[in-house]
Design a protein around this nucleic acid. Structure first.
Lengths: 211, 211
DNA sequence: ACAAACCGACTGAGCACTCGGTAACCTCTG
DNA sequence: CAGAGGTTACCGAGTGCTCAGTCGGTTTGT
């Protein structure tokens, strides 16, 4: 009936599908899902609104495809350099943030910015995407907690710091800086991230120099 | 003509006006401005939609009144204990966060949560409220920076930490924790805030005990 | 010839906002 | 202190727009 149920999609079909999601990510990152109409997306993607609805049976279906892409990107963003970076995770984050100033208009920025925008639209538990956000947050926290805990076991991180609470702090910092950067791209993100990472490393590490 | 231009409002008028803003804050904090209709707000406030539009000439006017209330609240939240708390600012923040778990459904929670929701809806620079958000962020950063700097001058804070970047970090943490708590009120906000404040204090203070 | 890919025209719901009223209340005057 | 006149506070019934989704088609690739 429809490709969502019977995905006998051809190469060309997949390509348009992909293009639509691309455009949707851009629009949603700027105006939110509620602030973006299917007509807008369709026009920019070079199809009619009906053509869009052929590929995604409803707005919600498109939204989910967009979230899938966002999830894949975030995954790569945090864990692209290995599944267990330990306390190096703060350096990874700072390194990524250092490149933000150059790419405020890029695809990367859209994929990142979606976070803040979609989250804001779905704080109420009775929206469709809310559960996805809760699950996403929990798994991220769990993974960061796990890598910090294993760093403690390896003796690379101080034992008197609760890994879960520290994970929450790290993710909160990411969210907060991202939000601030979105509303005002001129703030010194790179410097803030660098100072933060340096201080976190000093605080977390077991090294002899506590000075 | 209308109360917005000629505010000859009576006591009763002010009361309804106030009630409308109250309700609007609650709705917007949950569903965003775009996700809330004037009809919803009016019904909950016990007036007709036309009655609402008598007090606020447009949705945008109501939005601005809501933002005014939010601003006043945030002001009190951060600086209620004095205009120059120095590094104690992190303790103030942690203290406030400690009380969040008890008030997820309260007025306070709505006023707080608005931040995340409204910010997400206005990342694009061509929305009406965007400039207000940018200005609000900047002044907050400036004030935190100033109090940290004066702490340094008083010798209460280490000199080798950049106050502005630290201010950004502090505000980012607030944003991030708030966002996380909004989507999932069950997370241990109080504990995370307590550990964060303790570690920040140890890191910022000039005290002799660096452990 | 058959399915996949796509379109134009339509529909119905939801929305912010307008228009033409009415009722309560205050104020100034005879 | 009656009551006329004006102002404030509100309402019901529209209006025009935007938007997600439907329907009945046509084109294109294999």
């Amino acid at each position: 009936m429809s490709p969502a149920q019977k995905p006998k999609t051809s190469a060309k079909g997949l390509e348009t599908r992909d293009r639509i999601v691309d455009v949707a990510v851009r629009f949603i990152a700027r105006n939110g899902a509620r602030g973006t109409s299917l007509a807008d997306i369709a026009a920019e993607a070079g199809v009619s609104q009906t053509g869009l609805l052929y590929h995604f049976n409803s707005k919600e279906a498109l939204l989910n495809a967009v979230m899938d892409r966002h999830l894949a990107f975030s995954e790569q963003w945090l864990w692209g350099e290995g599944p267990d970076p330990g306390i190096k995770i703060v350096d990874i984050i700072a390194k990524h943030m250092a490149s933000w100033p150059n790419q405020h208009d890029s695809k990367v920025a859209s994929l990142l910015g979606m976070n803040t925008v979609v989250l804001g639209e779905n704080v109420s538990p009775d929206t469709e995407l809310h559960q996805r956000l809760v699950d996403g947050y929990r798994t991220t926290i769990d993974r960061v907690t796990a890598t910090l805990r294993s760093a403690q076991e390896r003796g690379e991180m101080r034992e008197d710091i609760d890994p879960q609470l520290k994970a929450m702090e790290i993710i909160a910092f990411c969210y907060g800086i991202e939000a601030a950067w979105l509303v005002d791209p001129n703030i010194p993100v790179a410097a803030a991230a660098a100072q933060w990472a340096a201080q976190q490393t000093r605080q977390l590490a077991t090294g002899p120099a506590t000075s």
